[in-house]
Computed example of a mutant assay.
Amino acid sequence: MRLSRADYKEISRWTEHLRPTRQCMRMLKDRFPKYLRESKAHPTAPVVLELAYQVDLSPALMARIILDRFLQSLDGEMPSKTVISSMIKDPSLIPDPILANNIYQCTINDCCYGPLVDCIKHAIGHEHEVLLRDKLKERNLSFLDENQLRTMGYDKTPDIILEVPIAVEGHIVHWIESKASFGDDHSHRTYLNEQFWSYWNRFGPGLVIYWYGFIGELDCQRDRGILLKDCFPTDIVTLCHATQQDRLPDRQNEDKERDKD
């Protein structure tokens, strides 16, 4: 599915009106003491989750902020991101059982952020990488996947590198990157700067598949070597096909010569 930027912005504007303007950080500072008071009065109540709803903040993000403040109050030092992340993933590591229960309630009730959502995104991404490999095998295309490339010493690679390049819609493709997400302006710009151009520098022109669609105007780098698609291409031209097509006129000329004789 390809969306125009105008359509995407219209959808975004409509979505923004579903919730009020965020003033979450200022409100959070004012309301933070409420957690300590309410948690003592109602130890089993989802206080942090309710706070997140009241200030219109992601429950997982609210949990991370509360946990960060809690750990600072224990040690007087800034906790590391690794420690906080491990406790968010496994609340049983939190020394305060009431807070641990609140953190757990936040993570399981957040549909956009947090460890559970990360697991879902990882699973969906892996599923589409498997789909891509299956499609390549169906076409008998020889390739190396990301795991194979890492064992060969590559530190930053696309999902697939084709051992023999192909052509898609008249454009040469040396590598393929699978993205199980929608390609909007922000994410695509980030991917270009952090991934796609480095792949282009190392391996040449390539193909990016946004399985859940993208803004059509973003497919503007074809001449520079970055092709966008929203599905696995069906009009693939291989080296074998190109060689056969080159030989076809010669065979036709040979047939004409035989007819003359």
Rank of each mutant, 00 (worst) to 15 (best):
E50M: 09
H128N: 07
D134L: 12
E38K: 13
M1F: 02
L57V: 09
L36K: 11
R5D: 05
N253Y: 05
W175H: 04
P95N: 06
W211R: 09
I88V: 10
G114L: 10
C106E: 11
P79W: 05
C106Q: 07
H241T: 07
V48L: 15
L149S: 11
D145S: 05
L207F: 10
P233D: 06
T21N: 10
R251L: 13
L71W: 01
G114H: 03
Q245P: 00
Q72F: 12
G183F: 06
L207R: 08
E38N: 14
S80A: 04
I166E: 06
R150D: 00
T238C: 09
W175P: 02
C111T: 10
P20M: 13
S198I: 08
A63H: 05
P249A: 04
P158W: 05
S187V: 07
H126K: 14
L93H: 05
I172V: 14
W200Y: 13
D110F: 10
A242L: 12
R26Y: 03
I94V: 10
L74D: 04
Q252N: 04
K34F: 13
M27Y: 07
R31Y: 05
E169P: 01
H171M: 06
P249H: 06
E129R: 08
Q244D: 12
G204A: 05
K229Q: 13
L61F: 14
S12T: 06
D68R: 15
P33M: 08
K229E: 09
Q148G: 09
T44D: 15
L61V: 13
L192N: 05
I176P: 03
R202M: 07
G216C: 07
S178L: 03
Y191N: 06
L228Q: 02
R133Y: 10
Q195K: 04
Y191D: 07
N147L: 11
P233V: 14
Y154E: 08
H186W: 02
G206V: 10
I66S: 00
W197K: 13
